[in-house]
Write a protein that binds this DNA or RNA. Structure first.
Lengths: 212, 212
DNA sequence: ACAGAACCGTACCGTACGGTACTGATGGAG
DNA sequence: CTCCATCAGTACCGTACGGTACGGTTCTGT
């Protein structure tokens, strides 16, 4: 997916998409007009339509472009002990909070949610598929590794992952999407990540054996 | 707040707001035009502007109107034993999931999130204040009652409540907002509510004494 | 050097929407 | 009966946006 997009799009087009993201972040969907983008990116409207088809195509390209920038987690072939596993979970929690609180992420999620009512343009599906799935996959792989190492236990991987997600994010995402201020403080994120991982271990952790 | 709104608005105006909510649910924000609402509600655009000022005023009135319909939980003066408390938590969890999955709730949240970028129209703030706050308050009262009865323990009420919220809702709200299908199945909600309450007790429950 | 493509800037068109003004009908008060 | 307020229906205006067309310029390959 990443390579296909990187092959299909010229650097110029990627720069235009980057500019479109900036406009979207700055002023929301209403600020992202074809004329405005053409002016801001110093290109012609005609080029925009030639490259992306129509406005919906532009929005989809923006989502795909942003998703192509997000790097998945490493595949961790190393042996897993308790502290290492905890550290990985903590890193995942911190990264997740940081990603969700990012300007571009919030703007794109607002855009997709705003378009969710229109049945004909499934931007939400696209966003979930391109943005969330790879995060989910790596996190689930992490949990599976922890289970195989005997550090945690669960019957349903998907269920355990979603519990972890809920403990980390709570209602923070929706409140940020609603524009509530004073929510994006990095030190609060770090604290919240630690607490969530702690709670996750209480729920799913395997008690350490005395002789081990 | 409820009485003030019920005094200020005539039944006719409330019917118009109800009609506006239906339009919003049916077609999203783009379907809610002043001309369309006037036609659907059989009133004139001039009346709309006289009653609500402008379009933003109409949207705010819709949120206030919808919030005025939501009934808070009862104040429970009764004595609290373990089973009763658990039942109350379960009821809260089920109600919360049902409310968040409601058509009107989703449509209004999408609307507020879509407007969140515009700094000058704080619909998100309004929605949180009118819709969420009363849910939060009653739930916190419930948790406080459980703590006073020695059934659960926590150091920070707000923190405990948000953990409960996260366990119940997880990422379901955002995914519904994004338009993901196949998520709104009542039996899944009931199951999820039970599991969340169970997990909440594991995290915050006080161990039952043998002699009690 | 030259031909052709790509592209920028701008002008243009149709439409849709927010908001206002006007007209006629209805209904209640004196 | 008459006056007045309210309101439905409609016509209208200005604006903004999506999408298209065109003239002029720059880049590229030969």
């Amino acid at each position: 997916m990443t390579e296909a997009e990187r092959d299909r799009l010229t650097p110029r087009q990627r720069a235009v998409l980057e500019c479109a993201l900036e406009l979207l972040v700055a002023g929301g969907e209403r600020a992202l007009t074809t004329a405005g983008l053409a002016r801001a990116a110093s290109c012609s409207k005609e080029s925009l339509y030639k490259w992306f088809g129509d406005r919906d195509g532009l929005l989809a390209a923006m989502i795909a472009h942003q998703a192509s920038k997000v790097r998945g987690f490493s595949d961790m072939g190393e042996t897993m002990d308790r502290e290492r596993f905890r550290a990985h979970l903590l890193g995942f929690a911190r990264d997740l909070l940081e990603v969700l609180a990012g300007d571009v992420s919030l703007a794109l999620n607002r855009l997709a949610i705003g378009q969710a009512s229109r049945e004909e343009s499934p931007l939400g599906r696209l966003l979930v598929a391109q943005g969330r799935r790879r995060i989910d996959r790596s996190a689930k792989a992490l949990l599976e590794a922890g289970r195989k190492a005997g550090l945690i236990n669960f019957s349903d991987l998907d269920d355990a992952y979603r519990t972890l997600y809920g403990l980390i994010v709570r209602d923070l995402h929706v409140r940020m999407l609603l524009g509530e201020g004073g929510l994006r403080r990095p030190e609060a994120f770090a604290r919240q990540a630690e607490q969530a991982v702690e709670q996750f271990f209480v729920l799913f952790g395997v008690r350490e054996m005395a002789g081990e």
